[in-house]
Simulated assay, not measured.
Amino acid sequence: MASVIGGEAAFIGSLTELIELNWSAVDAFTAALARMSRPGDRSRLASFLSDHEHHLDELADLAQELGAPPIETPIRPKLKSKALTNGVVGDRAILEAMRHYEEDSCAAYERMILSRDGLTERARDVLRSALAVERRHRDWFLEQLDARQGLLLLPL
């Protein structure tokens, strides 16, 4: 069994927060996919959605290894993506909203890695791998936004 020296319960709580963050991202990516006009963007977002679903599986497995009960139903955040359900219009605006999700994800994984002593090698590997993926997502959004300088449409 994996362990986190002196703090399994707290670490499981933090993993649960990461799981909630990933479910929020899944909801946001699902909403974004329905609104994107460019097929290449939809393809990339579908790939990112798959990555977040993979993170959910890995984080749930890690929490279970640490003694948490199996997660049988998804932990859903109380609020869905306001940015993508309140009338955000246009690919660039959607990319901007999604960039924020990836920045939040990066920050959350960085906090988990830096603030936890006694992580098992497996836990550290799962978190570092997910962080690398989230950074790749964030960087893609930044590159796309830089390439698409121009008008950002906001909801009225």
Rank of each mutant, 00 (worst) to 15 (best):
G6H: 00
L114A: 13
Q64Y: 07
A60E: 12
L79W: 09
I12Q: 14
D139G: 08
L131S: 02
L119A: 03
R35D: 11
V126I: 13
M1N: 05
R148Q: 15
L56Y: 07
G40R: 10
L154R: 07
A10D: 07
L84D: 11
K82Q: 06
T16P: 05
V126R: 09
R92Q: 08
A132K: 07
C106Q: 11
S47A: 11
K80Q: 15
Y109I: 00
S115C: 06
L79A: 14
D57W: 03
R135I: 03
A34L: 02
M36W: 07
E143C: 00
S24Y: 15
T85Y: 03
L56V: 10
S37E: 14
S105H: 09
L131F: 03
L156K: 13
L152P: 01
Q149R: 08
P70G: 02
S47D: 10
F141G: 05
K82W: 07
L84N: 08
A60P: 01
M1Q: 06
L33D: 11
S115R: 07
A60K: 14
F11A: 02
E110Q: 08
E110F: 00
L95S: 06
V89Y: 11
T30V: 09
M112W: 01
A97Y: 01
K80E: 13
T120N: 01
A32G: 02
L79D: 12
Q149M: 04
D125K: 01
H55E: 08
A34M: 00
R111Y: 04
W140C: 11
R136S: 13
R135A: 04
T73L: 08
F141S: 11
